[in-house]
Simulated assay, not measured.
Amino acid sequence: MRRLLFSLLIFILLMALSGCTWLQSKETALSGTIEADEWPIVAEVGGLVTKVAAEEGTHVAKGQLLAQIDPRLYEHQVAEAKALLDQATAKWEEAKAGSRDASIQKGIAAVQQAEANLQVSKARKKQADAGISRAQEQLEQVRAQWRGAEQTLAFQQNRLQEATALFEKGAISKKDLETQQEAVSQARTQVAQLAAQAASAEAQYESAKGEAAAAVAQTETASAQQTGAVADLDLLQEGSTGYAIRALLAAQQQAQAKLDQAELQLEKTKITAPADGVLLRSSVTEGEVAKVGANLFAMMKADKLKLKVYIPEAGLNRVSKGQQVGIQVDAYPGETFVGTITHIAEKAEFTPKNVQTPDERTKLVFAVTITITEGLDKLKAGMPADVLLPDEGGEE
């Protein structure tokens, strides 16, 4: 009897083990990390940061104040522009009514001051042009180094592919293979570092161009003021004409444009959120001097999350652009969220180190990008996630 029971128990265990294969899910999971598209927030004007009003990780609304740049200089510029507008208006009105001889000496002084301002502006423009040349030279140098590093990476990847084939045939040792894998890793790190340097050099180049543009605008303004001062003096000495009055009207309109520009610059001292989203990173502290073009914050839009996974060539028939897939995360066990495949890489690459085991890293895979369309209120950037794909039979 005991022998019969023992045999029955063995039979049940064998059936259970074989049943596991029958009951396996027909879905295969690929792993990745949820990412968010970063939206840089840069300083459009420079100055001392007097207030930082938002912290990393907080939700922000469109138009919400993130930081404040000291507005005093820009307030003075607005006041100066208002005074210039009042002056231009008064001169225009005076020219229509006729000028007074007592104003001639004041007109001469205005011409001399305008000449001095024009010379200062030209010197600033010359300095700004030199800054552009230096920044452009540095940018081209870094880009050349970056291209060289990318070529080195491609060379090392080809060598790794050859080393992998030799290792599988037993022609080289595992240590030789690992040495080549490390060479690829170092080349990839060099490419990333030079890419970051290129981005920084490009930002400096854009900042230099901004300085040059401001210098050009200042020179044009100073030149216009000098021309206006000479015209005013001519009016005072010779009397107003219809053409002269129209010139003064144009000067008044130019002064109004300068006031509008000054008020816009003052408004830019308030760094605000361009859209609803989450503040991912803050690169500025209170008391720091922000430069034009400097990245102050990085944020992500609240409704933009994506996930990148890597699939072997043999599995490409299981994915297609526009296909909906299931997404699971450890934070919400038992829940499956929905995403849509929006991009499939055209070129194969070696599996990134942070995705698979050392053996798997030597395989060629294709990157698949998935835009998350469901669960945006629960899923967060940085979460590890599994993507469920149908088996080759197409069943889920």
Rank of each mutant, 00 (worst) to 15 (best):
F155E: 11
E396Q: 12
A171F: 10
L13E: 07
Q190K: 11
F6H: 02
Q24R: 14
I372C: 02
L23A: 09
L84H: 15
E35M: 04
G98E: 05
G239V: 06
W92I: 11
A135D: 03
E392F: 14
A385W: 04
N317V: 05
A97I: 02
A331M: 10
E360Q: 13
L139N: 09
E396K: 15
V289I: 08
A79C: 08
K380V: 13
L307F: 01
W146I: 01
G57F: 00
L4M: 10
L316V: 02
A367S: 11
I34Y: 02
Q136M: 09
A163T: 09
L236Q: 06
L73Y: 14
A123K: 11
A171P: 01
V52N: 03
A247L: 14
Y205C: 07
L279Q: 06
K270D: 06
D391I: 15
V45I: 04
Q186R: 12
Q237W: 02
K378Q: 09
I132M: 14
D234L: 09
S320Q: 10
D391Q: 15
S31Y: 13
E220D: 12
D234V: 09
L153K: 08
T221Q: 13
R134W: 06
Q145G: 01
T371K: 15
G334T: 08
D101S: 07
E27W: 05
A165G: 03
Q127S: 11
Q24G: 09
E288D: 11
A165Y: 02
Q68L: 15
L279A: 04
L364F: 07
T152H: 06
Q151E: 13
T272A: 12
L66Y: 08
A149W: 00
A262V: 05
R134N: 12
A381D: 10
L17P: 00
A128H: 05
I245R: 12
D37I: 14
Q119K: 14
I104Y: 00
A61N: 15
P40I: 02
L249I: 12
S207M: 09
A212N: 06
A224Y: 03
A165I: 05
I41K: 03
W22S: 15
S18V: 00
T357C: 04
G334A: 05
L9D: 03
Q225T: 07
R72N: 12
Q261G: 06
A215G: 03
T241D: 07
D129M: 14
L8S: 12
A154M: 06
A130I: 08
Q105G: 07
A110E: 14
V329F: 05
D260F: 14
G394Q: 01
K82H: 13
N295F: 01
G210P: 04
V292N: 01
F366V: 06
F337N: 02
L388Q: 11
S283D: 06
G394S: 04
V278T: 15
A385K: 06
A54C: 11
Y74M: 09
Q156T: 06
G228V: 01
S18H: 10
R361V: 07
K301Q: 14
E374Y: 01
L264R: 13
K378T: 08
D176Y: 05
E94V: 09
D391P: 03
Q193T: 03
I104C: 00
R72Q: 15
G293P: 00
T219E: 12
C20M: 07
E44L: 14
Q328S: 11
I34D: 06
L48P: 03
R134E: 10
T285Q: 10
E202V: 05
